[in-house]
Simulated assay, not measured.
Amino acid sequence: MADVDVRFAQKSDVVELSRVLGRAFFDDPVMMWMVPDDARRARALPRVFGAMIRHHFLGNEAVETGSKDGTIGAAALWDPPGRWKQTPGEEMRMMPSFLLALGLQVGRGMGMSELMKKNHPEEPHWYLAVIGSDPDVRGGGFGHALMTSRLDKCDAEGAPAYLESSKESNVPYYMRFGFGVTGEITMPGGGPTMWQMWRRPG
């Protein structure tokens, strides 16, 4: 099995990254709650991820891609310490894509975002906002390569890391990288739960 090539994303990668993350999160409980219709979700998610990458994450220069044979199979969207909050300008530039993608469900997405912000840790840290692999390559070492790439840097910097797991089944996976559960965020109105996870530098 060929090694996974990890590199920083460029603007030219955005369309492919959006497609990969859209497929990765198609069966995600939070995304299914936000956009219940399968066909609509398949169209919406690449738009949502594309807007987030283009207007926020690329500017933080911490989007990493995992590739084999030149094809992107996975991506991790990180925010450096102190940079996890989207600016009003970034939010304004993302909103047309969000409205197009989510329609009337955009309010549900904004409510979720506000709840996550309210529960976000204050201590400076690297924030793993999104990590996902195309279902076709799961089990191929992409996630491991992406996690190791940034967490090794966190350890070198002495910086903690934080994430929210939207699938309870993924919690043990993150624990193998040194994360521990610190809390739960449950969406209102019978929505899904997210597990807050924190990692001290090794």
Rank of each mutant, 00 (worst) to 15 (best):
K68D: 01
V20F: 08
M31L: 02
G22K: 10
R54W: 00
H56K: 10
A101L: 07
V4S: 07
A74M: 02
D37G: 07
P201C: 05
D134H: 15
P160K: 12
L102R: 06
M187Y: 03
E122Q: 13
G103I: 09
A156E: 15
R40M: 11
G111Q: 11
F25R: 05
S149F: 09
A51Q: 06
G132V: 10
K167Q: 14
G70S: 07
V30I: 13
E114V: 10
S18M: 07
T182I: 14
D13A: 08
P192M: 04
P135E: 08
E91Y: 00
A42Q: 14
G191K: 03
A42M: 10
M175R: 15
G109Y: 13
A101S: 08
M116C: 12
A42F: 09
E64Y: 13
H125N: 06
A51I: 02
N60L: 14
S12F: 01
L100W: 11
L146C: 09
S18L: 07
R83Q: 15
G158E: 08
S165R: 06
D13E: 08
L21I: 02
S12Q: 13
S133W: 02
A44Y: 05
M110R: 12
A9G: 12
G189N: 15
A9Q: 06
I185G: 03
V14P: 01
D27A: 12
A42V: 04
L77H: 03
M187S: 08
A159Y: 01
E168Y: 07
V35E: 11
G50I: 05
G189R: 13
D69K: 12
V6A: 09
D155N: 04
S18E: 07
L128H: 05
V106I: 14
W198K: 01
D38M: 06
L17C: 13
S149G: 01
F26M: 12
A159N: 05
R138T: 14
W84L: 08
Q86F: 10
A51N: 06
A74K: 01
T65R: 11
V48I: 14
P135T: 10
F57N: 09
G82H: 04
V14F: 08
A9M: 08
I185E: 02
S12D: 14
R40Y: 00
T186I: 04
G107M: 12
P121L: 10
L99Q: 12
S97Y: 11
Y173F: 15
D37R: 11
H56C: 08
